[in-house]
Each structure stands twice: as C-alpha cells, then as structure tokens.
C-alpha cells in the first residue's frame, strides 16, 4: 500500500511566511508559559499567606483549570486545526473523571 505523503517543496515566499508564523507562534507559547508560571506563583503565595481555605481552595482550583486549558490548547496544539477528535476523547475523559471524583468525594465523606 502506498501512502500519499503531503510533501512538496514550498516556494521561498511560502517558506519565509511559514517561518514567520512559526516564530510568532513560539513567542505566544513563551507568553503562555509566563502566564502559567505567574498562576503557579500566585497559587503557592495564596496558600502560604494563610488566608481562609474557603477563599483560597476555589481560587487555586480555578488557576489549575486555567493552567491545564493553556497547556492543552497551546502546548498540546488544540488551538490549531484538526484537533476535534483529540478534544472529543479528552472532554469525554474529563466528564468521566469529574463524575468519578464527585461520586468518591460524596459517598466517602465523613
């Protein structure tokens, strides 16, 4: 079986444009990384500061959710085209994960 490989030599302009886009993309990735570091720092600082757990716990869980979303959409490329199936599998898994954790936490909670 011979498989089609979508490989053709790009024109010089196409290539330069692609490189420019890639550089821009990489700069965005570094920005995303800076945001993640910032969120991590705030989360640790909030816990260390000794504020009320009822305030800090939802805050750090929100930060974790944001960080994971950034990781998935940027570092793992979901924001690019063609990641519909990846999102379908992971959102299904997240739904099962959420249900399971909810069940465990509410059944065994004494």
């Amino acid at each position: 079986m011979s498989h089609d490989v979508e490989a053709r030599t790009r024109s010089k302009h196409e290539y330069e444009y692609a490189r420019k886009r890639a550089n821009q993309g990489m700069r965005n990735q570094v920005t995303v990384f800076a945001i993640m570091i910032f969120l991590t720092f705030i989360a640790f600082a909030a816990v260390q500061a000794g504020m009320s757990a009822y305030l800090v716990a939802p805050l750090i869980l929100l930060f974790a959710a944001v960080q994971v979303a950034l990781q998935l959409y940027y570092f793992m490329h979901w924001s690019e085209k063609g990641h519909g199936m990846a999102q379908f599998f992971m959102y299904s898994a997240a739904f099962i994960a959420f249900t399971m954790i909810l069940a465990f936490v509410t059944i065994i909670w004494w």
Partner: peptide, 22 residues
C-alpha cells in the same frame, strides 16, 4: 495516542478520587 491519553485521564481520576476519599 489521544485515545490513550483519554484513558490515562480516567486512570488518574480514579487515583485522585481514592486519595481525596482517604
């Protein structure tokens, strides 16, 4: 690989759920 990562997510969810309960 994404199917596998979905499975891994569920695996870790079971372990997180167990940890939170215990």
């Amino acid at each position: 690989f994404w199917i596998f990562l979905g499975g891994e997510t569920v695996l870790f969810a079971t372990l997180f759920a167990t940890f939170l309960a215990l």
